[in-house]
Amino acid sequence: MWIGWLEFDLLLGDVHSLKEKRSVIRPLVAELTRRFAVSAAETGAQDLYRRAGVGMAVVSGERARVVEVLDAAERLIAARPEVELLSVRRGLRRPDDD
């Protein structure tokens, strides 16, 4: 079993309130979940309306599949015009890695 995760640090475009922020982040998280069958959530900067942290995780029996999903998810977020991808942290491991 392989476990992979991404943590996105995002800068939001024309957003002026937390309500507007939610209207950008919720569809993004829903698309990650729907398109890639991953777990995703807003995980950081929840009190700032122009910044967002989004995390996602995927589990598979094959390392190549995990890497493929992580790469595709990163491309999807980077291509979104309403957000600027400031940084991405990536992790990939097996449960028996110490």
Rank of each mutant, 00 (worst) to 15 (best):
W2C: 04
W2I: 05
W2K: 03
G4D: 03
G4A: 08
W5H: 15
L6E: 00
E7P: 05
F8Y: 10
F8T: 01
D9V: 11
L11A: 13
L11K: 11
L12W: 02
L12Y: 03
G13T: 12
G13S: 13
D14S: 13
D14H: 13
V15L: 06
V15S: 02
H16T: 09
H16K: 09
H16S: 11
L18Q: 08
K19S: 11
K19M: 11
K19A: 12
E20F: 03
E20V: 04
R22F: 06
V24N: 02
V24M: 05
V24K: 02
V24D: 01
I25G: 01
R26H: 12
P27L: 07
P27W: 04
A30C: 08
E31H: 14
E31P: 04
L32K: 00
L32C: 01
T33N: 10
T33P: 02
R34F: 06
R35L: 13
R35V: 14
R35A: 14
F36L: 09
F36G: 03
A41S: 15
A41Y: 12
A41F: 11
E42C: 05
E42R: 03
E42G: 03
T43C: 15
G44F: 05
G44M: 07
G44C: 08
A45T: 08
Q46S: 05
Q46R: 09
Q46T: 05
D47A: 13
L48F: 11
L48Q: 10
Y49P: 02
Y49I: 04
R51A: 07
R51Q: 13
A52W: 00
A52N: 03
G53Q: 08
G53K: 06
G53T: 09
V54W: 01
V54S: 01
G55Q: 06
M56E: 02
V59P: 02
V59I: 15
V59Q: 07
S60I: 06
S60Y: 06
E62N: 10
R63V: 02
A64V: 14
R65P: 03
E68M: 08
E68R: 10
V69W: 00
A72M: 12
A73E: 02
E74V: 07
E74M: 07
E74N: 07
L76Q: 04
L76F: 14
I77R: 02
A78Y: 09
A78M: 10
A79N: 12
R80S: 08
R80C: 10
P81F: 09
P81N: 09
E82F: 06
E82A: 07
E82W: 06
E82G: 04
V83N: 01
L85D: 03
L86E: 14
L86N: 11
L86G: 10
S87E: 11
S87K: 10
S87L: 07
V88I: 04
R89I: 09
R89T: 12
R90P: 02
R94K: 13
P95A: 13
D97I: 08
D97G: 09
